Computed example of a mutant assay.
Amino acid sequence: MKWLITGGCGFIGTNLIRRLLEDDAQGHSIRVYDNLSVGGRDDLEKIASFEEVSSDAPGNIPDAGVELVVGDVRDSDATQRAAAGADVIVHLAAQAGVPTSVEDPRYDFEANALGTFNLLEAARHQDVSRFVFASSAAPIGECEPPIHEDMACKPKAPYGASKLAGEGYCSAYHGSFGIETVALRFGNVYGPRSAHKSSVVAKFIRRAMEGKTLEIYGDGQQTRDFIHTSDLTRAIMLAATQPNIGGEAFQIATNSETTVNELTDLIVDILEDEAGLSEVEVTHTDPRTGDVRRNYSDTSKAETVLEWTPRLSLNQGLRRTVRSFTQTQNANTENI
Rank of each mutant, 00 (worst) to 15 (best):
R185Q: 12
D24I: 10
V189A: 08
I12V: 15
T241H: 10
K197D: 15
D87T: 09
T79Y: 01
P310H: 07
P62C: 09
N244L: 09
R207W: 06
F226V: 10
A161V: 14
P287Y: 09
W3E: 12
G247W: 05
G65W: 08
G85Y: 13
A96N: 13
A111T: 14
H228L: 08
S136R: 05
D219K: 08
P62V: 12
A134P: 03
M1H: 03
D273H: 00
Q329D: 04
G59A: 05
N335E: 09
R206M: 03
G141D: 07
E67Y: 02
D298E: 10
D77W: 01
T304G: 09
D265A: 06
G8C: 07
N118S: 04
F325N: 02
E274D: 03
H91P: 11
K212M: 01
A172H: 06
H91N: 13
V305L: 15
V69G: 02
R74V: 13
K197P: 02
Y169E: 11
E248T: 11
G317T: 08
S171N: 08
D219Q: 04
R206W: 06
E103M: 13
A331M: 05
M237R: 12
R81W: 12
F109V: 09
G40D: 07
S54D: 14
F11W: 00
G166M: 11
D43V: 04
V200R: 08
D104S: 13
G175P: 02
G85P: 13
S171M: 07
A195R: 05
V66E: 12
G7E: 06
G175L: 07
L184I: 03
Q222K: 10
S29V: 08
N330Q: 08
V280R: 02
D265E: 13
A302F: 09
D43M: 03
P58C: 11
V53C: 04
A48V: 11
A239H: 00
A111G: 09
A122M: 02
Q80A: 13
T223Y: 04
K46P: 01
F226C: 11
Y217S: 15
E142I: 03
A152P: 00
R207T: 11
V305F: 06
F11I: 03
N35D: 14
T289K: 15
I89M: 07
